[in-house]
């Protein structure tokens, strides 16, 4: 097991990502931030509150998106239990920033884009991730904002811990996870 980001570094990284969003999207009148359920929402909650603090705008559109019904592996994986989708605003013509914690094969993001488009036609969709597992993509998807890139092999696993649910902020790389 190797620590990729400790609590201190993670805080700096989150600050950077939030500042990058503010730099590109100020004043957030046409931007919606959307976290992907279930694990992406801890990152998106943090980013959304940081962005609100930095920009001074407390009325930023922020929603959660569940992608369970849009997955492409219904018959090859165990059944996934859905989480709630909560987007109390229209995404029509907006700049949407999708947020997930780890970008790996890209299939989750593919599902998320399909799910998103069922709610309307955004003007533009961007992707923000905390960890990018490079060279393991199965689809042509890349992040627009990324916290930390790591080269991994199939048997490894990246685990992100959050204070809110796991009691600590940390990102670790686990070896030899049973396939």
């Amino acid at each position: 097991m190797k620590t990729l980001l400790n609590s201190n570094l993670m805080n700096i990284t989150l600050q950077r990502l939030a500042h990058q969003l503010v730099e590109n999207h100020m004043p957030f009148t046409d931007t919606a931030i959307i976290g992907i359920q279930p694990r992406g929402i801890y990152l998106s909650n943090r980013i959304a509150s940081l962005v609100k603090k930095i920009s001074g705008n407390n009325n930023i559109d922020y929603g959660l998106l569940d992608i369970t019904f849009y997955r492409d592996d219904v018959h090859s994986a165990d059944i996934h239990v859905p989480s709630d989708t909560n987007m109390p605003f229209s995404i029509e013509g907006k700049n949407v920033v999708l947020i997930d914690d780890v970008l790996y094969t890209g299939r989750t993001i593919r599902s998320a884009m399909d799910a998103l488009i069922d709610f309307g036609r955004p003007k533009r969709v961007e992707l923000l991730t905390l960890i990018d597992r490079r060279f393991s993509r199965e689809l042509p998807i890349q992040p627009d904002y990324n916290g930390y890139s790591v080269d991994t092999i199939l048997t490894q696993k990246v685990k992100v811990y959050w204070q809110e649910t796991d009691g600590k902020d940390e990102v670790v790389l686990l070896d030899k996870v049973a396939p």
């Binding site: 569940d66 369970t68 019904f69 849009y70 997955r71 219904v74 239990v81 859905p82 989480s83 709630d84 989708t85 399909d114 069922d118 709610f119």
Partner: peptide
Amino acid sequence: KTADNFKQVLQRPIKKVPT
């Protein structure tokens, strides 16, 4: 629990998912 989520889907403009 799952029906709750599908009920949400049925209230959207596009009442359909490709699952």
